[in-house]
Design a protein around this nucleic acid. Structure first.
Lengths: 213, 213, 213, 213
DNA sequence: AATGAATGAGAGTTCATTCAT
DNA sequence: AATGAATGAACTCTCATTCAT
């Protein structure tokens, strides 16, 4: 957790520092990210940095917290109110699109959260997960579990694996952005992208002609 | 590409050096991997290393090439002969299990290929992909395309996204191994794991009661 | 010397700050002791610290003053009243035991005074000795001089060297405590320890059989 | 232990680096000594230093080894040949003077060995003692034990305490040098200094008039 | 071809101290 | 008088890479 010193800072300055950190972590990942570059970018003294955070890992934890909480809230806001109005297909579509859009708008946050999720078995990331226990990085999984409980999703579907599959697919949007610039992540693109996921999740992958379930 | 000096080395020595590099990259990823540790482990002089390879990235490229080619061959050998005998469901199952088993037997190769795939949008990895163009790391995708061509797989399924979904799910096995040791990757576990993926790909995720496709 | 600001503090607060400093200096010695840790332990602001003391050295001087004066008084109280009643052997024994007991009870003060004595030729310590001139850290030497004056101790004995020898021996008790915990400094141990010093000072070290003085 | 890289260096360069380290450790003690200053003084790159030694502690261990071994040899050379010719008094005198002279000639080595002995209960020093087990830093104590075995020294004398007392006294010569410069450590001064120690060890400290043993 | 010593920039981190509030 | 944020130099140590032999 950041030290009190950091929390006492004017919110604007806090945000500026976190933004610089996000930039660095998004570009380089945890291991390669450099505190020196962050403080240089933020225009603060190195000593100051260590009055704000215990160490690199502490900062990273805070950034992850910030990224995931932010993501969660953004997505929830768009989705939660409509929870009951929609049938499941429409809802999943909305959920995925909502998250995709969020990703498209905050590509660096996306990059960092995916990186974090990908390394979730490594020491640093495990310690952070331990520290911010209540912080679910897995919005999909939670949702899927709920829908299974409500019998909208097939009880035989493994929610962990489903969540990983969706997550795996989502990485494509990142790749697309890397190739074509973030401005290429238009609504149209996100729509067509979600269509494709949705199709598989709805129909399965087999031609009707050859497959009898 | 390795320099000619490296290729002139007795094959045994080449393999030994690559094995040491695989070990290091598997444990630390590209960014953190240390040339110093590799040459120490291999018992060669630092100077020699730089007569074999241009730099760290050059070595990494060669390791990736080695890893992906190796994986591909191993998997193919087990699968290709039975290609025509099976219906699609059984085949996918065989394919996935085959790759899973390969993973279970060569966990470091697996680790490296997944790491590589995950970072495929980052500069180092993109340069390597460019260099080793013919090297498809995506066995699934190739296969899916073929099956679509043969009309076994629904033409509407996007093969790239499907491949990413399977790949995403596969990361679970890695995680499982990291937690429980590679000896935990028994045939039973792999079977049940593939069952779950297969279920989703066959049925889709929606309850029949609420969903009409 | 501490600034007036410090002396204006309620005595309780002064003591608390000094106690925290004693703790830190005892654990780390002058060089490694950290002002940051002291103010953190004491719960005062860093700025306040520098309104109380010029700098680290100023604080250290004050701590030494406090430690040595405290030690001196404690020891004197126990010893001085009996000064005339005892013969020299018994007195030295009492003196040493008294100081040992004091050490055993205030191990941190002991640690600091010994550290200070040991470094008495180094710049920081010399400046402090200069500043607190009247502060003799050498209770033994003073006493020996007195006893020589009263012709109880051989005039040929060099009091400085004798004092250093006793001091050297005393370090063993510190070492013993470090190994076995301060609770190991029982009366029995202190007794047997002083016996050994006393024996040498009384008999010299040579066997009667081989040595005629 | 230094790395092979260091041992491969031309002896001259090894010595030069160790001399620079001795200088630094003598002036500052282990904790404050700075690798940066040492490499600057020695004119080598920082990276080179870490190819020679594991870390600061490794260097320190080597310096201690060097210092103590050197001392031991020097002293032994002067003393051992005459071992049988002299009676004990004369021998102890010779031994002490020999060590004192050695100190006088290599004041920095002396400083370092005393510092090391003084901190023998602290983690760094204990690890070094463990590593260089066969390295006795206590020439006196060994000798005393031998003399007790040969019944020249009173069996009741505790050799550890005696050794500490002599060691304590010896610190005076260091102090004297610090005040008056090392050139003040003339043979005459060393002689008179040893006389005083010798006197106490021979006669004890009490006036014959007042003391009956 | 092989060696391994040399390099120096850069990493994360701690420090005593200053100064605006 | 009290605060605590700001500072930047200094620390130990690691790195990929070069180059003389």
């Amino acid at each position: 957790m950041p030290k009190q010193t950091f929390l006492n800072l004017p919110e604007e300055k806090q945000n500026w520092i976190i933004d610089c950190a996000v930039e660095e972590f998004a570009q380089n990942g945890y291991a390669v990210a450099s505190i020196s570059r962050i403080v240089a970018a933020a225009g603060i003294a190195k000593g100051s940095f260590y009055q704000y955070f215990e160490d690199k890992e502490d900062l990273y934890g805070h950034v992850i917290d910030y990224a995931l909480v932010k993501r969660k809230i953004q997505v929830s806001d768009q989705v939660s109110t409509k929870l009951e109005e929609l049938n499941l297909t429409a809802f999943i579509r909305l959920l995925i699109k909502s998250e995709m859009r969020e990703f498209a708008q905050r590509p660096k946050i996306l990059k960092i959260s995916m990186d974090y999720a990908r390394h979730r078995n490594e020491p640093v990331q495990m310690r952070i997960a331990e520290k911010y226990k209540d912080l679910s990085d897995n919005y999909f999984q939670n949702f899927i579990q709920r829908e299974k409980a409500r019998n909208k999703v097939d009880q035989n579907v493994d929610d962990d694996i489903l969540s990983l599959m969706i997550f795996g697919a989502a990485s494509k949007i990142n790749e697309y952005a890397a190739k074509n610039g973030y401005e290429a992540l238009t609504d149209e693109y996100v729509d067509s992208f979600v269509d494709k996921i949705e199709y598989i999740l709805t129909h399965g992958i087999y031609s009707n002609t050859t497959q009898t379930v």
